[in-house]
Design a protein around this nucleic acid. Structure first.
Lengths: 357, 357
DNA sequence: CGCTGGCACTCGTCTTAGTGGAGTGCTAAT
DNA sequence: ATTAGCACTCCACTAAGACGAGTGCCAGCG
């Protein structure tokens, strides 16, 4: 049932030890109490006496997979223990059908709520009873549909652009000269005719190139338009961001009942950049990725785990979503939640049937 | 120094009792411990023995202004006690100059960060070390500057409209027939020419009126435009909302260290509607308003106080801002913070110099 | 050699009892 | 009206003891 697995230590764990580690982790995840040899003896179907189990536990402890809070307590999995568990021992439970339908109806492609990201985040937190997080799609991979300029006053121009299906972004730029509404309209028309349908990243690059190379063969109007486009799509136009929901769910967990910890965690949430960096790392790999406790490298997350998955639109990874909860979480249920949500969100964002502008 | 004040009770408190209540509240706010007769005797400059003070305290307790946690503890102000204190006894401290400059530079009118609301909220939480909240300006009092329609697919039309200086709103509507981009452009032009510069509320009313009365004398194009406008400005277009920052500051206070309470509070924050309703009540009155503890009527805020002030643009109240913290807060400092911030925010939002579109 | 029962030991948790201090209410005296 | 004095209450803290859970180790058994 459980294959043998080599660990960093030269020693090889046999199937029985792994089996025991597995039931230990499962049991600990269930009731949060350190689990003793007697309980383990009953829970596992190995028919071993508590004494034997104690010997095995001593080995596991030597390997750093479990840990005893104090002399006369049972064992608790360490981070390495959890890691081994999720990597090799975990038996993922399929999603319950009611949860699956819940996800489907929430992220139905027909919906044009304009806030699919928010919906996905709420679904994650609702289903898992922990915190759900979804990054906004990467703008490099987002395609421009329409751009518009509005004069505010003097040289202040409001740029509005629509991406993908229905996302609207806006930014104020300062132009070098004063434009009439008609000129702005013309510039927008020009840019729309050329760049509509291209990714923002591509547009940015093209704009830079044009300004370097083709200045002489462009009309003044075209030149103005391109210059404004450059201002509009300037680097950190819209900083990476994410939607986090269900933070309050985290306040129920005993491992986060320490106010200091909780405060640090919530501060990390509102400062965002740490979380963003963490999530960015998950963009690289496909499929479900997990950070357990201190693995994340951020002190605020020391007692939390993060289960993430990248989501893709037309086979291109555009963002990450995931669930944040205490290290002691039901990974076997959370993983499929995250996995399926990522896939459905990708599908919902797909520019599919709708005809281009 | 302290005037006599009638209370709901027929009995009238003399100056001495009030003086004592005042120092009691001040002292309690300072160190959070129930204050005893001996301490009060030393703190007040009345030169009374502890025994006398005890008699006064018994009176105050009968009036429900103070309360004893248990037999041998000092007294703690009740909600009524706090109320009397802030209404009649409080000596407001002027703002420290460094805080004043901080506010001025943060809300300097020249800034066009586009996020003055967020800045105001952050300033409030930063200066008070509690949570800052600022409602978005009321849309009824916000004036339309420009409207634009973009066809998404079939009958789905994206409406974008700009209000005041630089705020951009968007919404997707479903039209009854399919429009060409040119038709949409025409409709937008028509609406802009008529309604630009009017408040959203006025536009909504005018639209309804036109549809009822003047249908026959309008062209088909005008009719379509007005119908779309109606969809766009339909009632709860953009629900009232607010920006809340510094929630984590609240996690340090001992009166909110109970996880259950804290969770309720944070859930109220994320559900928003309760807070919105509370803040709406503050729109009516001008100047600083205070809700102490259970006065708010929301259980989640039972142990919190809310110090608010409406902010106005050109003498018209458009929103509310405030500070949320534990009931035991330094009102004499918080009040001026809120007061000044409201005034500066109003000034920063003023359409002043910028010429209309 | 692996497994098991037994036993002494450790340690956290809970209860109980005891002590000290802070602060009150009441009463009698000024 | 104010005050000093006194008995009383109640919380907070500490110490001690009982209990229970679980361990480590050892000796015996297949």
């Amino acid at each position: 049932m459980v294959a043998e697995v080599g660990v960093s230590n030269t020693q090889v764990l046999n199937g029985r030890s792994l089996q025991l580690l597995k039931t230990l982790v499962e049991r600990y995840i269930n009731d949060g109490q350190p689990v003793g040899s007697r309980a383990l003896s009953k829970d596992s179907d190995l028919n071993l006496s508590p004494a034997t189990i104690r010997n095995v536990m001593a080995d596991l402890e030597d390997l750093g997979l479990v840990h005893s809070p104090h002399t006369s307590a049972g064992r608790v999995p360490t981070v390495s223990g959890y890691r081994l568990f999720v990597d090799s021992l975990l038996t993922v439970k399929p999603l319950e059908s009611k949860d699956l339908t819940r996800l489907h109806q929430g992220l139905a492609v027909s919906e044009d709520t304009g806030d699919v990201i928010g919906v996905a985040s709420r679904l994650l937190s609702e289903l898992t009873q922990m915190a759900g997080v979804v990054t906004l799609p990467k703008r490099e991979l987002v395609c421009l549909r329409h751009i518009e300029f509005l004069s505010l006053s003097h040289t202040r121009v409001l740029v509005i652009f629509v991406t993908n299906e229905q996302e609207v972004h806006n930014k104020i730029i300062h132009t070098s000269k004063v434009f009439s509404p008609a000129e702005l309209q013309q510039a927008a028309n020009y840019l729309n005719s050329i760049y509509s349908g291209h990714s923002l990243d591509a547009v940015r690059k093209a704009v830079v190139k044009e300004l370097q190379e083709d200045q002489e063969r462009m009309s003044q109007g075209m030149l103005d338009a391109v210059k404004m486009a450059q201002l509009a799509f300037d680097q950190d136009n819209k900083k990476d961001d994410y939607v986090l929901t269900g933070e309050t769910n985290l306040m129920g967990f005993s491992e986060l009942s320490d106010m200091e910890r909780l405060k640090n965690l919530f501060e990390a949430f509102s400062q965002k950049q740490g979380v963003i960096h963490l999530l960015d790392q998950c963009m690289k790999a496909d499929g479900v990725q997990i950070f357990i406790g201190e693995e994340s490298g951020y002190r605020a997350f020391d007692h939390c785990s993060l289960v993430t998955s990248a989501y893709s639109v037309s086979d291109e990874v555009v963002g990450v979503l995931g669930v944040i909860g205490p290290t002691r979480m039901a990974y076997e249920k959370i993983i499929p939640y995250v996995d399926v949500t990522a896939k459905l969100l990708g599908a919902a964002l797909n520019p599919k049937s709708t005809t281009p502008l």
